[in-house]
């Protein structure tokens, strides 16, 4: 069972790399925000899996809970911050 958890965690890391592509090369700023949000929601599960692998669930579960809260607040704050940037994205839609 522990090897299965390890494979799941590795596959999750691979998926995080795939979302990192959007976070780096995204044409607009908000695309990068979407990528970061996706990475954060995978990290919660990754933390839980690490807790099960090390046999210390009750410690890692608190970190996962705090990370879920922090991810939500990060996305809210960043999207509020980019409210007032009108015309920031125009050049990417010229094609």
């Amino acid at each position: 069972m522990s090897t299965f958890f390890l494979c799941t965690a590795l596959f999750l890391c691979f998926l995080m790399l795939a979302s990192l592509y959007r976070a780096i090369f995204g044409p607009t700023v908000l695309d990068r925000l979407v990528g970061v949000n996706a990475i954060g929601s995978k990290t919660v599960i990754l933390l839980l899996l690490i807790g099960f692998l090390y046999g210390r669930v009750e410690m890692f579960i608190d970190i996962a809970l705090a990370y879920a809260f922090l991810n939500f607040i990060t996305v809210l704050a960043a999207s509020r911050y980019f409210h007032k940037r009108k015309g920031l994205y125009e050049e990417s839609f010229l094609e």
């Binding site: 908000l30 979407v34 939500f72 996305v75 980019f82 409210h83 940037r85 994205y89 125009e90």
Partner: peptide, 14 residues
């Protein structure tokens, strides 16, 4: 969070 990102995009005029 999704709604907040969409709102930011709408206000930026995408």
């Amino acid at each position: 969070a999704t709604h907040s990102i969409v709102d930011a995009g709408m206000r930026a005029g995408l």
